[in-house]
Design a protein around this nucleic acid. Structure first.
Lengths: 238, 238
DNA sequence: AATAATTGCGTTTATGCACCACATTCGCCC
DNA sequence: GGGCGAATGTGGTGCATAAACGCAATTATT
């Protein structure tokens, strides 16, 4: 008997800012099944492209978002996960900087919505992780898996930086970790740890427009130093 | 244009003993492409089964090995990874106990061979990871990925136990970790750590047939206690 | 009975983490 | 301008845990 399995790629894209916490990028479906339901951006895999290229293309056309980090998450293949028949979903997991969060994600097909407008027929949006609606297919489960991966991975790989602007105050990084790990972190020990690792580059600039209090120094992630440490077997751990 | 992507499942099955170190289960291909080359056990995904069920079935029919732990590893989808056309390989990652390593893996496929027969033209075997030949397709790369996963995972999840007999001396576990992490571990601290976690059950039995030296007490993994600790947020770390 | 090998348990030293104290630098208000 | 609130930068201390090391106990071998 001949094999008949179709393949889609899906993307769980996380964004973060200190006001809203963690958000996920969603698109509204325009065709059945699950028409008008929110879903993960994604679509059919093409016959000749690498899977990762497919995801990036779908993301670009469906949301116009430029991603900062992308890795494969998991392949979902339950026989009944799609009413149309047997579908594999190769899910990816991505991160964007806060600047991408501020701009409204918009399909490139339609002309741009004015920034900040909230129209009911919009087709892509950021949704806070705590406020996720019921999504199409098994997409809630996919996000759950991506969240678990994110929470585990930031503890031993420096991917948290990918969720912040390239220059950031340490307190921002700390708040990010507190949000994701759901536990308080000692400000001073956190700073001391990062300083002793030497994977931060201090800048002369200072944070502008702090709401109140002393403006913080800005830092950026020292990728060179990190890969050097990695080779020496010293690992990042929070 | 219509999508035409076929799907296979592949399994990287690891076995361990203190004499040979880590080994991988291989099967010899009997059809082109790569005919007579060694490859990972696997095959076409069926239309209506969950992927994991497919892998287990293929493993049973191709090698007769009973596996002890199985999880999804990664989906390989480079457009040129199979000369026959576009193929996705959903790779799984599994572990067996040493008893499975001692018995020669044998295909149960054809009715031509009686079940227990061990013919010289056998098509499945264990291969030490240091002695891997060039395999069919991208299977060397798949094993590389599985190895990385194994080495990382044993550090924070108790899957090392799945590579040992259900009752084992602590020194066996320690040697396993030394082999996989490729660094020496202090015997006494290792033992203390496991004892303080309380995830080992001590047995009255002692190791039989030690080559020399004092026979060691036998222990087994306390799954109940481990899942209890897990719920309390205390995690396993070596 | 001496020796080698390996296990089991204890002691000391170093490191990391929770917690405290205080100076510094900004905005804001009087 | 000076005091105040709020947040950042930097130093330090005590405790718990991990790393490093010592040594006796148990077995096979000779």
């Amino acid at each position: 008997m001949h094999q008949h399995i179709r393949v889609t790629v899906e993307a769980v894209i996380f964004g973060y800012n200190s006001r809203d916490g963690l958000s996920v990028l969603l698109v509204k479906r325009t065709i059945p099944p699950y028409i008008f339901k929110w879903a993960l951006p994604g679509g059919f895999a093409s016959n000749d492209e690498p899977l990762e290229v497919c995801v990036k293309r779908e993301l670009r056309t469906e949301t116009g978002i430029s991603i900062n980090y992308l890795e494969q998450l998991y392949t979902f293949g339950a026989p009944d996960r799609d009413p149309r028949g047997r579908f594999l979903a190769v899910a990816y997991f991505g991160l964007v900087r806060p600047t991408a969060l501020q701009t409204k994600p918009k399909p490139v097909i339609t002309s741009a919505f004015p920034l900040g407008s909230v129209s009911d027929d919009r087709e892509a949006r950021w949704c806070k992780i705590q406020e996720l609606p019921q999504l199409a297919f098994d997409h809630n489960m996919i996000i759950e898996k991506a969240l678990t991966r994110l929470r585990n991975k930031i503890r031993y790989e420096p991917i948290g930086f990918e969720l912040l602007d390239s220059k950031f105050p340490i307190s921002e990084l700390e708040k990010l970790y507190e949000t994701l790990l759901a536990r308080p972190i000692d400000r001073r020990n956190f700073q001391k740890k990062l300083n002793s690792l030497g994977i931060l580059i201090a800048h002369d600039e200072k944070q502008k427009a702090a709401l109140q209090g002393r403006p913080a120094k800005l830092f950026s992630f020292n990728e060179q130093e990190y890969s050097k440490l990695r080779e020496e077997g010293i690992l990042f751990e929070i």
